[in-house]
């Protein structure tokens, strides 16, 4: 287990614990987010186990990516009631596409990068719709203290760059450019770290907001 991975796991565990300690205080979307971080933590542990025992962690990602899709779209579905039905139906379509990809393009033993490329536009769209929704339902709180602003920003950055990196990644792998592949991996690692740090802040902000509302 590399130091980089240990830092990543520790961060996930801390965010997860923060969410679980504040769970009762959190609003529904942020409870989903906490569960999502918990699932991510467990899946990351599972990837290590699979890598050590079966020398392949591919199957974990084939299972994890639909679960991730479920949690993120459920999070936005709670915040965007008009899009809830469409996002719920998209789960069915997404699962079907995951199955088709596993059967025809990337078997469970391969990394499911197609699924990542497929899910990113949906997450980006959700974040943009949420930004638009924020403009129509402005909160009195300063924007920089609003959890949703930070989460949307973080989601936008992570998934736009993930999409960008994976698009390059596949091309670079084919051309055998190992230097660039390493750079891309580092970029994605850093993006992942920023995403989970912001998620921790977001959970804290939501808990604090709920506490203030209760006190009022």
């Amino acid at each position: 287990m590399t130091t980089r991975f240990l830092i990543y796991l520790t961060l996930l565990l801390l965010v997860c614990l923060l969410g679980l300690f504040q769970y009762k205080r959190l609003s529904r979307p942020y409870r989903l987010l906490t569960l999502f971080v918990l699932v991510t933590f467990l899946s990351e542990l599972a990837t290590r186990y699979f890598a050590r025992v079966y020398v392949n962690s591919g199957p974990v990602y084939h299972l994890y990516l639909p679960v991730q899709y479920f949690f993120i779209t459920a999070f936005y579905g709670n915040l965007l009631p008009r899009w809830k039905t469409a996002l719920s139906w998209s789960w069915v379509v997404f699962v079907l596409l995951v199955l088709v990809n596993a059967m025809l393009y990337q078997s469970p033993l391969h990394f499911a990068s197609n699924i990542i490329l497929l899910s990113c536009p949906v997450y980006i769209l959700c974040a943009l719709l949420s930004f638009r929704n924020m403009l129509s339902l402005t909160d009195e709180r300063p924007l920089l203290r609003q959890e949703l602003f930070w989460y949307n920003t973080s989601t936008l950055f992570l998934y736009i760059f993930t999409f960008f990196c994976w698009s390059f990644y596949n091309i670079l792998l084919k051309s055998g450019n190992t230097v660039s592949v390493a750079t891309l991996t580092t970029v994605m690692y850093v993006l992942g770290l920023q995403y989970y740090i912001v998620t921790g802040i977001v959970i804290y902000l939501d808990a604090r907001h709920s506490k203030k509302k209760d006190e009022q």
Partner: peptide, 23 residues
């Protein structure tokens, strides 16, 4: 070829970051 690919990646990344930051 590898170096030029890195340059393309960096420039495209910076551009993307700029657009996002602007947004």
């Amino acid at each position: 070829n590898n170096i030029s690919e890195i340059y393309v990646f960096i420039i495209a990344g910076i551009l993307l970051f700029g657009i996002l930051a602007g947004f």
